[in-house]
Simulated scan of single mutants.
Amino acid sequence: MNLAERSNSYTIRLNNISVHYEWYENKEANDKPVFTLIHGFLSSTFSYRRLIPLLNRRYNVLALDLPPFGKSQKTKKFEHSYQNLSQVVIKLLENLAIEKSILIGHSMGGQIALNIAKNRPDLVSRLILLSSSGYMERSKLSLVYSSYLPFFSLGLKKWLEKQGVRKNLLNCVSDPNMIDEEMIQGYLQPFNDDNIFKSLTRMIRDREGDLSSEELKKITIPSLLIWGKEDRVVPLKIGKRLNRDLPNSKLIVYENTGHLLPEEKPNEVLENILSFINT
């Protein structure tokens, strides 16, 4: 049975926006913590398609599309700050009565997970950070001001189209041969709705800077950091710096691996996660 056949997909209204989430139940895992999967920028739950079935063999798994990505609502009225996005995840956990969760955050999703750990540590038992973003400053004022210009979102759309999904994926993986048509279409699908470009324009204005070293040092939740040595999107030096700042963290580095860890090395990621949470 494939992932789509086992998936229970839902839509819920949280913080004045419709959020898509998926619940994968394992009836033998009711006494175990739930894994909550948070994807990265320009991505969706699709990026976890290889890891979800592996985790679901032992655990209940929750995955969501952060607005404005995936199947979640795309609107310029929503505040697309990391603080607000982390509140969406917190509200989802509360609505589903999930008292403790192991958060897995990939890329930007790692920064959202860190915000949740900072603001609601009671909800988090472990942090798994896969090539997590970190130490990014807020967008330059010149770009923020430019985002208010008419047709800025149209220009953003043309720029992203020029980049192309395949080109972006080539920058994210170590082995280009793994990129097939299914992968391209999966990452392309959310951008068929033009409203996403208006939302991304709003995100340029709303996104605050990443958590500082001082804030990170206060997060004592056990954390596993996994990185690809050939990551060109969030280089390994970010992982090493996070490992220094997070007081209760461990860093694992994969050879011949890029940025898309859940796609490139799902079995290895699973093995390291299981070892970490059972320690």
Rank of each mutant, 00 (worst) to 15 (best):
N171M: 08
V173D: 01
V173R: 00
S174G: 00
I179S: 02
I179Y: 03
D180L: 05
D180K: 04
E181Y: 06
E181A: 12
E182M: 13
E182V: 14
M183N: 02
Q185E: 15
G186Q: 06
Y187Q: 00
L188K: 07
Q189I: 10
P190A: 06
F191C: 06
F191H: 02
N192L: 15
D193I: 13
N195E: 15
I196E: 02
I196K: 00
K198N: 10
K198C: 07
L200K: 05
T201Q: 13
M203E: 13
M203T: 11
M203A: 15
M203K: 09
I204W: 03
I204D: 01
I204N: 01
R207A: 11
R207C: 12
E208P: 05
G209C: 11
D210S: 14
L211T: 12
S212A: 08
E214S: 14
E215S: 10
L216K: 08
L216G: 09
K217P: 04
K218Q: 14
K218S: 12
I221H: 04
P222W: 03
S223Y: 10
S223T: 15
L225G: 01
I226N: 05
I226A: 05
W227T: 06
W227L: 10
G228H: 00
K229E: 14
E230Y: 07
R232S: 03
R232Y: 00
V233M: 12
V233C: 09
P235G: 07
L236D: 00
L236I: 15
K237Q: 08
